[in-house]
Write a protein that binds this DNA or RNA. Structure first.
Length: 948
RNA sequence: GCGGAUAUGGUGUAAUUGGUAGCCACGUCAGACUUAGGAUCUGAUGCCGAAAGGCGUGGGGGUUCGAGUCCCUUUAUCCGCACCA
């Protein structure tokens, strides 16, 4: 049936959540009234400081941490609390299991958006940040989290960033000793220089240095400081940086994606600038090794491994014809050295001028100038394009003594290895493309492949044309060459990492100031007792006309003696790198964390957060923690034992279809009969993909006179999964859900939506199912007239079985973070219990449910069940396997109620081990024929019969 | 290009980890109660078929008594890295 309706003519009414509650709540006052219950308990928890925790050596600790939010102006949407709800359920569960649970929350409050907003509006970032924090807090409070707010931290609070600055000073004052494999005071290195110069020093550094004690003695202060900057763990260096002109600041590698800034999406270019850096690379191997011991997902560990990018290879020196210099290269394939037919150096290579002969000078200069002009983005886009130029110089292959030409090309990166390579076109696709383009010889040294078409890059095969390694397999040959290269003194075995040192300065205002001042252009650390160095107030937040950072606008931004402070500020990851330590002892003004607090709380047992921090925060935190560990300030060398990545919640957008050039809208099923235009419609005026016509007319003035072509009297909307954003009108606000369904329904529904780690769209359709569950649960305690309905009768075996089955399932599910299936378990439990209103069943069930839905359970606990203590003073229910035994047959606890087989077990004997054995054996034995018992398993002392 | 993950009804998902695929919900349909239903309750609902029955976990192949699950291959989507020598 197709009907065209006009204003108010649609007879059939459509159901909407926002209309639904208003009438219903008046019908029965003793229905489950979440609007009353939830604020009541939230107030109660607040007043009694229910979730405040202290060190308690008599109880085991458990530390559950969420990645603290950046308080953006948009507030929370329904996706943000997902991880918080999961961690809250886990915290409450652990607390009920008897752990002393630390579950704090705070704000990552420094950052770009607040500053961008300040530049536009002149509003101080501190003001907007505080407003946003207040809004966040309000929204969070409504959901009923068990955070210990007494421990709240804000990264922009001077009392907090004092310790960020403190850690920076410690890094400035330390270097990494490779021999002891830890950070040590820089004074120790200075003492060594005074005695022996660089002789015997094996330390992480920017450039390898070589000088004697006498050289050191002869240096002035500035020269010495330059040397030390080469070793300090926080140091200043002239380096290629990702410069974002639009944001007016440099960015770290993990803040750039595809040549664009992650925040804002502005183009990023490469620029040489003097910047502060953290020597993260010193910890590359330990960051890699540490992953083995962490209970993180394999995919996340793999991302970190790739980011660290360890590769084993050899450093080899090639003689340069007509020079006493040797060109150093790095290769992971020393076995292919007989196939080297040319060399390539990066355009930024420091010897480029020396290597260029006069007749090639112009060509090379042009090439270098041209590559400089290309932005990072263009270089990425033109990856396939082969370009380069010949320097005119030749190197000598140390194994064949053949002269081979040296080229310059931008496919060789200055920042990796030595910025120079030996090219083996037969077995490296990039070298191959280059050789083809410049007509260079290609010598196969590994059997296999068809070199007329492409290079043969495989890491297996037999060596040929390679003198003494002929006939060996690639893997053997590599090992032979390592020893041969070292024996001949041509170079050494070496490990290279893709990981780069972290650029630590930002040319911004809204961040931690560096506790550094300058005297004669030498950087000096502020003494620790002067911390915190507070961020001075300013009024204009943009860069100066000279392009200096905003802090240059501050008069007297200098020490009392008049020495100027550093003008840049620290990046976002500075404040988040050690916040988990600060939560342990947030009010301590003598230390980042006291010895006592650190030794009790140690590190984070469970960390819940998004995977987007894989190469940023999660890497920097580990580095930061390892550094503090080396110095003895913390007892654990990894900060986050277990990590769970919650998936992103996407938006589910709805569409209406306007017939082009009219104000008529056609329902989804009929839209193909017209020429239509797809328009996003606010998901809050759509339910179950049916449009609320009146709400649509009221939504925007231009739709006030809208007409509709309906199917079966309904307007069906189209839908699509997109990012949750204002412009798609698909943002669902948790406040709205809390108002209409309650926080408990929101909490449970977010978990019910699907596996925690999976990305999934938010879809308010379906929330009724969860809400209905809570109402039915309520009605087991109170009847329709609001009368207490609880029975003291004895539970039947079937009821007990249901209860214990559910306890077991929920327990396992919580431990495995499979919250969606535990919600299902509750629903099944309720279906099975029917009208059962026995205290014996409902009391444990209430406790079991409480981590998920704390408000309703607390209310029932104290009113219907008549307890005076809060639910959190009780223990999480234990299940009892004996209840599963019937007629001398034990049912393996098959959750969905199906019994696949029965096995005879001795009653009254704990039988977990026995069950395991039976299960292990029966899997192979069960279905050999059809129906009869067919296998007898003899377990020492017992005979077990398997029956189908 | 390399590495990782995922793919199951109209929808979100589940599956004792190799053992009756589709639990639990949403939606839909039918019914009960009701002034009303947008409350509540009951039943049906993977697909084809009147039924018997057949088909069915992205496609193809394999291992196995038995495969959503393991192996090979292929396609699609998502994520990470990307000239890393």
């Amino acid at each position: 049936m197709i009907t065209t309706t006009h204003n108010n003519h649609n007879k059939k009414r459509v159901i909407f959540a926002n209309q639904l509650q208003t009438t219903k709540s008046t019908t029965n006052i003793m229905e489950y009234n979440f609007r009353e219950i939830e604020p009541k308990w939230q107030q109660e928890w607040k007043e009694h400081k229910t979730y405040q925790v202290e060190i308690d050596p008599s109880r085991p600790k458990f530390y559950v941490l969420d990645m603290f939010p950046y308080p953006s102006g948009a507030g929370l949407h329904v996706g943000h609390p997902l991880g918080y709800i999961a961690s809250d359920i886990y915290s409450r569960y652990k607390r009920l299991c008897g752990f002393n649970v630390l579950h704090p929350m705070g704000y990552d409050a420094f950052g770009l958006p607040a500053e961008q907003y300040a530049i536009q509006t002149g509003q101080h970032p501190a003001v907007t940040t505080t407003q946003n924090i207040n809004r966040y807090r309000e929204q969070l409070d409504k959901i009923g989290f068990s955070f210990d707010w007494n421990r709240e931290v804000r990264t922009c609070d001077p009392a907090y960033y004092k310790w960020t600055q403190w850690a920076f000073l410690k890094m400035f004052g330390h270097y990494y000793n490779n021999k002891t494999d830890k950070a040590e005071p820089i004074e120790k290195l200075i003492a060594h220089f005074e005695k022996q110069g660089t002789e015997g020093v094996d330390a992480a550094c920017t450039n390898q240095m070589r000088f004697s004690a006498a050289d050191w003695a002869a240096m002035d202060e500035k020269q010495r400081e330059e040397v030390l900057q080469n070793y300090r763990l926080a140091f200043r260096a002239d380096t290629m940086v990702n410069w974002c002109p639009k944001l007016g600041t440099v960015l770290a590698n993990d803040e750039v994606k595809d040549g664009l800034s992650v925040r804002g999406g502005y183009p990023v270019e490469q620029k040489r600038m003097k910047q502060w850096l953290l020597r993260v690379t010193a910890y590359a191997q330990r960051l890699l090794d540490g992953l083995e011991r962490l209970a993180w997902s394999d995919s996340l560990k793999e991302i970190q491994r790739n980011w660290i990018g360890r590769s084993e290879g050899a450093q080899v020196f090639f003689n340069i014809k007509g020079s006493d210099k040797k060109l150093e290269i790095f290769t992971t394939r020393p076995d292919t050295i007989f196939g080297v037919t040319f060399m390539v150096i990066a355009p930024e290579h420091e010897w480029i001028d020396e290597l260029t002969t006069p007749e090639h000078k112009q060509e090379i200069e042009e090439y270098v100038a041209q590559t400089k002009k290309r932005s990072e983005r263009e270089r990425i886009a033109e990856t396939k394009r082969v370009s380069g130029a010949f320097t005119g110089s030749y190197a000598v292959n140390p194994f064949t003594d053949k002269e081979i030409p040296i080229y310059v090309s931008d496919y060789v990166l200055a920042g990796y290895g030595t910025g120079a390579i030996m090219a083996v076109p037969a077995h490296d696709s990039r070298d191959y493309a280059f050789a083809r383009h410049f007509n260079l010889p290609i010598i196969p040294v590994v059997e296999g492949g068809d070199l007329s078409v492409e290079s043969y890059d495989a890491k297996s095969g037999k060596l040929i044309n390679s003198d003494f390694i002929d006939g060996l397999d690639v893997k053997e040959a590599i090992q032979v060459m390592f020893t041969e290269i070292e024996r001949r003194g041509l170079g050494k075995k070496r490990i290279n990492y893709r990981l780069r040192d972290a650029i630590f300065s930002r040319q911004r205002y809204w961040g931690e100031p560096f506790p550094i001042y300058y005297k004669d252009d030498i950087a000096y650390p502020l003494s620790e007792d002067k911390l915190p160095l507070e961020l001075p107030p300013i009024e204009n937040f943009g860069p100066t006309e000279q392009g200096e950072p905003p802090l240059a606008r501050v008069h007297n931004w200098a020490t009392p003696e008049g020495y100027p402070y550093e003008l840049s500020t620290m990046p976002g990851f500075a404040g988040s790198s050690a916040y988990y330590l600060r939560y342990m002892d947030p009010h301590n003004d003598q230390a980042l964390v006291s010895k006592e607090a650190d030794e009790y709380w140690r590190n984070v047992d469970l960390y819940v957060g998004g995977i987007e921090h894989a190469t940023g925060h999660l890497m920097y935190s580990r580095f930061w923690n390892k550094f503090l560990f080396d110095l003895g300030y913390v007892v654990e060398d990894e900060p986050f034992k277990k990590l769970v990545n919650q998936g992103m919640i996407q938006g589910r957008s709805n569409f209406v279809y306007r017939i082009v050039g009219t104000n008529k809208f056609v329902s989804l099923g009929l839209k193909d009969q017209y020429e239509t235009q797809e328009i996003h419609v606010d998901v809050n005026i759509v339910k179950n993909d049916l449009l609320n016509l009146d709400a649509f007319r009221a939504w925007r003035p231009e739709f006030a006179e809208a007409e509709f072509i309906l199917e079966d009297g309904k307007y069906v909307c189209g839908w699509a999964i997109e990012k949750m954003s204002k412009s798609m009108y698909n943002v669902v606000n948790p406040d709205y859900i809390v108002e209409n369904y309650g926080a408990d329904t929101l909490r449970m529904y977010e978990m019910f939506l699907g596996p925690l780690e999976q990305s999934k769209p938010w879809d308010t359709n379906g929330i009724d199912g969860v809400h209905k569950f809570l109402r039915r649960f309520w009605r087991l305690f109170y009847n329709r007239d609001g009368m207490l309905n609880l029975s003291e009768g004895k539970a039947t075996a079937a009821e007990l079985k249901t209860l214990h089955k559910t306890i077991k399932k929920v327990r396992e599910d919580i431990e495995n973070f499979s919250f969606n299936t535990s919600v299902s378990a509750f629903m099944i439990c309720l279906n099975e219990l029917g009208e059962c209103n026995k205290r014996e069943i409902l009391e444990p069930l209430t406790v079991l449910l409480s981590p998920f839905v704390p408000h309703i359970t607390e209310e029932l606990w104290q009113t219907a069940l008549g307890h005076t203590d809060t639910i959190f003073d009780t223990r999480f229910p234990e299940y009892d396997e004996h209840y599963l035994v019937e007629n001398s047959f034990a049912y393996p606890i098959s959750f969905n109620g199906k019994v696949r087989f029965k096995k005879e077990l001795p009653l009254g004997v704990p039988n977990e081990e026995l069950e395991k054995q039976v299960l292990a054996d029966s899997n192979t034995a069960r279905y050999l024929d059809g129906k009869t018992p067919r296998k007898v398993i003899v377990v020492p002392g017992k005979i077990i019969n398997i029956v189908i």
